[in-house]
């Protein structure tokens, strides 16, 4: 009898429950797993690439600049803290073939190099099921400057290097994102400046951003090159590239105002050739500006 009473009571409860608009809503609200958007605001952080790519049919125009040493023997008031000098200038276009696939071309002042890049988003972080985003990045660079010595580049392929990177990123909260970028640089022996240095170099980048306002973030990245595959006892002092900056987003533009020790902008140049250090005034000011153009259809599909 008691059991029957209990069953009756539970039945009654469930009917009462089903009577309510709110409880019916609760049954309907099975939340969809959406992709996490905007892990980073831009496809580039300070020096490194982020997991972000161009949106489909969007073209970005890039202008980048690296000034001279702020301090040390090449900086100070003689060069207005490096502002008289341009160690690198970058002009480039990136185009999103799909939301996942971006191709780009660019030209750097450093080594007068032309570069082409491909970025592919392999995995997208989702709100529930997928914790990480993974993007593959490849960039080839062609040095076009006159050789410094007669036999610097014996053949045309001596001017070409390739860089591959896997970008693993996670947006921890609306304001905080991090990434880890293991990479590998393949370069011909002709491009090795220090005779003891290895041709090919492993690189491990780490980077992050913290939003301080809705449209303004602090960004930083650091790349381990020394201490990986690079020999320890080199004639030249090489340093690990490190940059910090402020990123400002205004609709179609993203501005990054940076300080870094690397003289060059593209990875093929700065991974092997960073000879300046933060500790002896070799840090420099720089900026990276992108302007986005939507080349897709103007009308909504449905």
């Amino acid at each position: 009898m008691k059991k029957l009473l209990l069953i009756q009571f539970l039945l009654l409860c469930s009917i009462l429950q089903a009577q309510d608009v709110d409880s019916l809503m609760a049954n309907l609200s099975e939340e969809k797993d959406y992709r996490v958007q905007a892990t980073f605001k831009s496809p580039r952080l300070v020096l490194l690439q982020t997991n972000e790519t161009q949106k489909a049919k969007n073209l970005a125009f890039w202008v980048g600049h690296r000034f001279g040493d702020i301090g040390g023997e090449f900086g100070g008031s003689n060069t207005l803290f490096g502002l008289d000098i341009a160690t690198d200038l970058y002009l480039g276009f990136d185009y999103g073939i799909t939301d996942a696939l971006t191709v780009g071309i660019g030209r750097s002042k450093f080594n007068e190099s032309y570069s082409g890049l491909v970025k592919y988003r392999l995995l997208w972080q989702e709100e529930d099921s997928m914790p990480l985003s993974v993007t593959l990045f490849g960039q080839s660079s062609w040095i076009t400057r006159e050789p410094f010595s007669r036999n610097e580049f014996d053949k045309e392929s001596d001017r070409i290097s390739h860089f591959f990177q896997v970008i693993i990123a996670r947006k921890f909260s609306p304001g905080v994102s991090f990434m880890i970028n293991p990479g590998f640089l393949i370069r011909p022996e002709a491009q090795v400046q220090d005779i003891d240095d290895s041709d090919n170099l492993f690189a491990l980048g780490i980077g992050g951003r913290v939003k301080i306002f809705k449209r303004i973030s602090i960004i930083a990245d650091y790349t381990f090159v020394n201490g990986l595959s690079r020999p320890d006892d080199l004639q030249t002092d090489y340093y690990n590239p490190f940059g910090v900056g402020v990123e400002i987003e205004t609709g179609g533009h993203v501005f990054a105002l940076n300080f870094q020790n690397s003289q060059a902008i593209i990875a093929n140049n700065f991974i092997p050739n960073t000879t300046k250090s933060w500790s002896d005034g070799g840090v420099r000011f720089g900026f990276m500006i992108s302007r986005n153009f939507n080349l897709g259809p103007k009308k909504i599909a449905n």
Binding site: V21, S29, A38, K55, N58, E249, G252
Partner: peptide, 23 residues
Amino acid sequence: SFKVMMRSFKFEKSLMQEHFNEN
């Protein structure tokens, strides 16, 4: 009782969609 997820809105330009959700 009516409910719609903000993330479910689709825009003609995906950068707009990102700005809508983010900013």
